[in-house]
Amino acid sequence: MNTKKPLIHEMNIQERPREKFEHFGPDKLSDAELLALILRTGSRNKSAVCLSEEILDLDIPGIGLEKLYHLSKKELTDIPGVGDVKAIQILAICELSKRLSKLKAREQISFCSPESIARYYMAEFRSYRQEHLMLLLFDSKNHLIGERLISKGTANASIAEPRDIFSEALRAGAVSIVLIHNHPSGDTTPSSADLTVTHRIYESGELLGIQLLDHIIVGNSDYRSLKAEGYLHL
């Protein structure tokens, strides 16, 4: 039985991604068809749609298009039919998506709300396979004056030292800080290491006069506020 899928030029005109887009609109295209429009071409024996389906079927974290956030350039170019140009196009689209998500969220963000902070950074953090720790810096009026990526950990642990955090806070003239980091597994339950590091930073901040307002852990679509859950007694 021949299960070979047709190339783009072998499809009926109304089934081709570009023509389908023009006649019915982008919302009528599948994820693979939309990605195929970005790739433009497939390989010698594989249509752009088939190539897109192969990318979206990779055995990596995420579902469907979410998988694109987790792919590196090398992983993409390891796929037959995906060269440097196609890999860069995909990664550029992912970066644009993250920036657009942050722009939209910025209009509604309140840095007094753990949920608002978590939603703002979630699109960026869900693309990481390792733990990343971000430091948010605030002035005396609780205005955000900067953000710093403090550390990148292994798949299971992020390393953070109080001296790294407070050297950045002192350099920026911050009077309060918020920590936010991701759990690549998606489980936002704080580990014993998370709690230990949080308390060390909180106590160090008390000595320096720089208050740790919260430590937020984000997963794929969930978050935990250590302050809201009583781990920080402010």
Rank of each mutant, 00 (worst) to 15 (best):
residue 66 E to C: 04
residue 37 L to E: 07
residue 115 E to I: 01
residue 24 F to E: 13
residue 196 T to Q: 13
residue 224 R to V: 12
residue 216 I to M: 10
residue 231 Y to T: 03
residue 121 Y to D: 05
residue 141 K to D: 02
residue 95 E to S: 12
residue 24 F to P: 01
residue 25 G to D: 05
residue 113 S to Y: 09
residue 217 I to T: 01
residue 76 L to C: 06
residue 190 P to E: 09
residue 89 Q to M: 13
residue 39 L to G: 03
residue 69 Y to L: 04
residue 123 A to I: 00
residue 208 L to F: 06
residue 76 L to V: 02
residue 175 V to G: 06
residue 72 S to F: 06
residue 116 S to P: 07
residue 27 D to A: 15
residue 19 E to Q: 11
residue 19 E to N: 12
residue 168 E to Y: 05
residue 155 A to S: 15
residue 67 K to S: 05
residue 185 S to G: 15
residue 136 L to W: 00
residue 3 T to F: 13
residue 47 S to T: 11
residue 173 G to Y: 15
residue 225 S to C: 03
residue 28 K to W: 09
residue 111 F to A: 11
residue 72 S to C: 08
residue 217 I to F: 01
residue 24 F to T: 12
residue 95 E to A: 13
residue 127 S to H: 02
residue 47 S to D: 05
residue 43 S to D: 15
residue 86 K to E: 04
residue 134 M to P: 03
residue 26 P to Q: 06
residue 19 E to D: 14
residue 47 S to W: 02
residue 21 F to G: 02
residue 161 E to G: 06
residue 22 E to M: 14
residue 94 C to Y: 01
residue 38 I to K: 11
residue 145 I to N: 06
residue 2 N to K: 11
residue 156 N to K: 14
residue 145 I to Q: 00
residue 64 G to R: 12
residue 165 I to G: 03
residue 27 D to Q: 15
residue 164 D to Y: 07
residue 206 E to H: 02
residue 77 T to I: 12
residue 229 E to R: 08
residue 21 F to R: 11
residue 18 R to T: 09
residue 132 H to I: 03
residue 232 L to P: 09
residue 85 V to G: 00
residue 173 G to W: 15
residue 63 I to E: 14
residue 100 L to Y: 12
residue 232 L to I: 12
residue 135 L to V: 01
residue 23 H to K: 14
residue 8 I to N: 13
residue 45 N to E: 10
residue 108 Q to K: 15
residue 105 A to T: 05
residue 159 I to P: 00
residue 197 V to I: 10
residue 42 G to I: 09
residue 190 P to R: 05
